[in-house]
Simulated assay, not measured.
Amino acid sequence: MAITYRKIEERDDESLANLIRKIFREFKIDKPGTVYTDPTTDHLSAVFTAAQSVYWVAEEDGQLLGGCGIYPTAGLPDGCVELVKLYASAEARGKGVGKALMQKSIESAQHFGYNEIYLESFPELTAAISMYEKTGFKYLSAPLGNSGHFACNVWMLLVL
């Protein structure tokens, strides 16, 4: 069956939270100051009801494979949105799922009229960082905005 891409729904919350935390344990980045301990991780469908935000999920045969979205994080410069919570299950990696989710999020940012996309990550997530670089994200020397994820130590920006 084909992979389908759709906007997050409340029924996705538990599966997505479990997937995100599993990935954080896999890469040994399950620590305070990340989405691992962020209480909103359990209710992402509610988080993405905010204006000018969207979260995309990938699904195959009723199984969530991953997700990615954009969110107008407090403190970002005007016209800038944050690329958030890009995760793909181990089974989905290397199949273009993460790239497709990121591309849908970038297209959504353009649709909303943003001209920059910011992200925070970890050096352990080498495949994701490589994908960001290939997409045109450039490294920043310090974080932007007020995500509250103080443990992240890779910051990047894409000018649209």
Rank of each mutant, 00 (worst) to 15 (best):
S141G: 09
D13N: 15
Q52Y: 11
Q52H: 11
V54W: 04
Y5V: 05
A51W: 00
K104A: 07
E26F: 02
A90K: 15
Y118N: 02
F137E: 02
C68K: 02
Y87D: 00
T126G: 00
A2N: 13
L76D: 10
K85M: 05
Q52T: 04
I70D: 08
K134M: 06
G94E: 08
A2L: 12
F24A: 02
L83E: 03
M1P: 07
L157K: 14
E26W: 04
G33E: 13
P77D: 10
I3S: 10
L157M: 14
A2K: 15
G75V: 11
E59I: 07
N18F: 05
T135W: 07
T4M: 15
P32S: 06
K22Y: 04
S141V: 03
P143R: 01
V35L: 05
H149K: 01
A151S: 12
S89W: 01
Q63M: 08
L160K: 06
G148L: 06
E26N: 04
H43A: 06
Y55V: 04
E124Y: 03
Y36W: 14
A74V: 12
K99Y: 10
L64M: 09
L83K: 02
E10I: 09
V35Q: 02
I20R: 03
Q52N: 13
L76E: 09
E91H: 07
I20G: 03
A88M: 01
A74Y: 08
M102V: 00
D78C: 02
V159S: 11
T49F: 01
K85N: 10
E10L: 13
I117L: 06
A100E: 15
H149S: 00
F122W: 08
V81L: 05
T40L: 13
E91A: 15
L86D: 02
G69Y: 10
K22W: 02
G79T: 05
Y132K: 03
R93M: 08
A88T: 14
E14M: 05
S105H: 07
H43V: 01
L64K: 13
P72I: 11
G69W: 10
W56H: 15
G98V: 03
L101T: 03
L16C: 04
A17L: 05
E91V: 06
F150Q: 05
R11Q: 14
A90T: 14
A51Y: 03
S53M: 08
L83G: 00
T40Q: 14
G75H: 10
K99R: 14
G96P: 07
T40N: 15
K28H: 14
K28C: 09
V97S: 04
I70E: 07
E116F: 05
V159T: 13
S89I: 02
L157S: 01
P77A: 13
S130A: 06
D38H: 11
A151E: 08
R25A: 04
P77W: 13
G62V: 02
I106W: 05
G67Q: 12
S105P: 03
D13S: 13
A142N: 00
A2V: 13
L160P: 01
L64S: 06
I3N: 13
P32T: 05
Q110C: 01
G66I: 10
G98Y: 08
A51I: 00
T49E: 11
G62I: 03
Q52I: 00
L101Q: 01
G136L: 03
N153R: 10
E9K: 15
D42C: 07
D13C: 12
D61G: 08
E14W: 01
P32D: 11
